[in-house]
């Protein structure tokens, strides 16, 4: 049952990725300009012809497509227009470190803070703690991360000079970008946790635990917390998306040498292979996270563990 479900999910995942890959290929065909225009247009027709031949761009489109897909499966995402024909894969790998570091830091700190905030709000339901946690959550969900990043940078770096305004040269440099990036995961976690916790606290089994004479603290931590935490895993999906969109803008604002900053730069100079490569990377990341969330959910929730499907 479970195995069948996993296999089915993986097949869908591969179909999705295949469609995205094909779409990027089609797009490359339609996009204006030859890849060698960027070199300054100083080439003669013969030189260009030699290059086209060398890169296989004179082959029929189906052949190119097959080669594109097979290269991609092998991790070869093509060659950058911008950087002297460096391979896209190596550009991405070079820049993966700071992005992963920043993303992980924001994800972990943001979700822990969010869970605590949401839990406290639910326990102190309808008190000022609850209201202020709600206000923080609404602000965190509403204010775009680049606006938030801009304000953080202006006040904490330019005005008060507490943190460095940009670059990536040590832990202190990660503070502002992390805060800017984690605000959305924190808010969404807090909100979700609060709702779940309130629902759990209003449930019959919590009342039964009370009727057993169990103390409030035990109810919170032994009965309520676990039940409320399980569904919070589902926000990992939207959180990943927000981290991906977030890195694009926040790395640019704080001059972090990550994938997002490279991506935005590539967009500005039409470096299509890098754009497509990064797009594929994001797609894979997203699809994998969605799958992992689903499987994790089944693993943690005993109701799903043995039945192999929700409900």
């Amino acid at each position: 049952m479970m195995a069948k479900y996993i296999i089915q999910r993986i097949i869908y995942m591969l179909i999705t990725l295949f469609i995205i890959a094909s779409a990027t290929f089609v797009l490359m065909q339609f996009l204006p300009g030859s890849p060698f225009n960027e070199l300054g247009g100083k080439m003669t027709a013969e030189q260009e012809e030699i290059l086209l031949e060398e890169y296989g761009l004179n082959d029929p489109v189906p052949v190119q497509y097959a080669r594109y897909i097979s290269n991609m499966v092998q991790g070869d995402l093509g060659v950058s227009f911008q950087y002297d024909n460096r391979s896209v894969t190596s550009i991405i790998l070079d820049r993966l470190g700071p992005s992963a570091h920043l993303g992980a830091q924001a994800l972990v700190i943001g979700s822990i803070l969010g869970i605590i905030l949401g839990m406290v709000a639910a326990i102190r339901h309808n008190t000022w703690v609850d209201y202020s946690s709600n206000v923080i959550a609404v602000i965190g969900i509403s204010i775009p991360s680049f606006v938030f990043a801009g304000l953080l940078q202006y006040y904490f770096a330019v005005q008060w000079r507490i943190f460095p305004p940009s670059f990536w040269e040590g832990p202190i440099y990660t503070v502002l970008p992390t805060v800017a990036l984690m605000i959305f995961p924190m808010a969404i976690c807090a909100r979700f946790m609060r709702t779940e916790m309130l629902e759990v606290l209003g449930s019959d089994y919590i009342e039964l635990a009370r009727a057993k004479g169990v103390s409030n603290n035990t109810i919170m931590f032994k009965h309520a917390l676990r039940n409320a935490l399980i569904p919070v895993i589902t926000v990992l999906g939207p959180m990943t998306v927000s981290l991906m969109t977030g890195t694009l803008v926040i790395e640019q604002i704080f001059a972090v040498p990550g994938i997002g900053e490279q991506f935005v730069r590539s967009i500005s100079v039409n470096d299509y292979p890098v754009i497509m490569g990064t797009t594929m990377l994001f797609s894979v990341l997203f699809v994998v996270v969605i799958l992992v969330v689903d499987l994790l959910y089944g693993l943690i929730d005993p109701r799903i563990r043995l039945t192999g499907g929700k409900d």
């Binding site: 449930s203 089994y205 039964l208 009727a211 169990v214 032994k222 005993p302 109701r303």
Partner: peptide, 20 residues
């Protein structure tokens, strides 16, 4: 509660902690 007075609830489907 639970020692001298205890209680049985209406809906057995929801009155047990699903993760315990």
């Amino acid at each position: 509660r639970g020692k001298d007075l205890s209680m049985i609830f209406q809906d057995p489907m929801t009155s047990l902690n699903p993760t315990m």
